[in-house]
Amino acid sequence: MQTTPELHLTAVVVEDEPRIRRFVSTALEAQGWHVYEAASVASGITETGVRKPDLVVLDLGLPDGDGLDLISRVRGWSAVPIVVLSARSDEGDKIEALDRGANDYLTKPFGLGEFLARVRVAVRARTSAADRDSVFSFGPVELNMATRIVKKDGVELHLTPKEYRLLAVLVLNAGKVMTHRQLLHEVWGPTQTENSHYLRVYMGHLRAKLERDPAQPEYLLTETAVGYRLVGL
């Protein structure tokens, strides 16, 4: 596992289970993070407000309330990346966390390598969003937001308006899990947020046009029952 130290960054880890809090902190500190710990929703909100961190790692099951509340509260004043840890395998919680503004989630037990990879994506997505360039590329695909031209292996592709819009939304949120609801809202508008089968059809088209093997996508990944995520940008 490669380790690229990310210096001068602060993280708040909100987790009531001391062993998990400890290894998450240890792993982040080994990467050069400065870590503050909290064991409840209340202290998590305080720490996030005081420390102005670059990352919040949040456990959903906390003793004094639901971690979901913390997401809503923090999103009221901050766009800090939030990575959710959950012992619940129920997709409903993940979707709820993402819809409220969390960037990513991991189901316990999770591998540290996977965790650190997600953290890197979440933090980088934020910095890249800050200095937004009009040309994006992942794998063989190149997307120019200014000219709306999409190329694969240098060859221009024809995308329908909806396909282009779906791709653009995923690109602008690269690395972040986008729930079905969020994507439908962005692409088809607020009245179509229950028609997740639209996404299946259009995602199939996008994969057929952009992926090398649509059945084993490398960039347009499925988060089963939750949504989609674009990686490799």
Partner: peptide, 8 residues
């Protein structure tokens, strides 16, 4: 999670 994470 503790066992796997701490070991890792």
């Amino acid at each position: 999670s503790g066992v796997i994470g701490l070991a890792e």
